[in-house]
Simulated assay, not measured.
Amino acid sequence: MPAMPSGTPACPDNDRTQACPDTDRQHRLAAQLADMISGAATIRVSLNDPKHAWPHPHAIVKDEAGQTVALGRTTARVAARWILRVWPEADWTRPHTFDLADATLTRSDLIAVDGRGR
């Protein structure tokens, strides 16, 4: 995929991650993940895979209705790694949710406070 020119990072000063990459990259990632995972609306990413005792990329995908979308291990791990690489500065000691509709990353514990659910 050809590289697109980077713009100035612009993130609102609210509950979103403190620093973010250019929005073109975020939107490309959202489009790629939506193509790769049919029906995906959000992807919750953490380094706490319940099947491993050590930090390991883990993703849980939900559809628009909030139902979990079944993924293979490889697809889940690839999705988590792609998101981790786009936001390396995020505090990955806490889980984050990537919203594919607006290509934004939010700490998952902050989403629950907003009342929007997980």
Rank of each mutant, 00 (worst) to 15 (best):
D49H: 13
Q32N: 09
R81V: 15
L100G: 14
V78F: 03
T93F: 01
T74K: 14
L29E: 11
D35A: 14
L100D: 11
D49W: 06
D63A: 12
A90M: 00
I60S: 06
L71M: 08
K62I: 01
L105V: 11
T97Q: 06
K62V: 02
R118K: 05
F98Q: 01
C11F: 05
P50S: 02
P2R: 01
R73T: 07
I37Y: 03
R77N: 07
M1Q: 09
R118S: 06
R25M: 13
W92F: 01
A103D: 05
A65S: 12
A10M: 04
Q67L: 10
R94A: 11
V45E: 07
R28V: 08
S108G: 07
R118M: 05
P50W: 02
A103Y: 03
W82G: 05
D109G: 03
R16W: 07
A90S: 06
K62A: 08
A31G: 08
L71V: 08
A40G: 15
P2K: 03
I83L: 10
R28P: 04
N14D: 14
S46I: 07
G72V: 03
T42W: 09
S38E: 13
L84C: 09
A59H: 06
M1P: 07
T17E: 11
A40W: 03
R16L: 12
W92H: 06
V86G: 00
V86N: 01
P55C: 00
T68M: 06
Q32G: 08
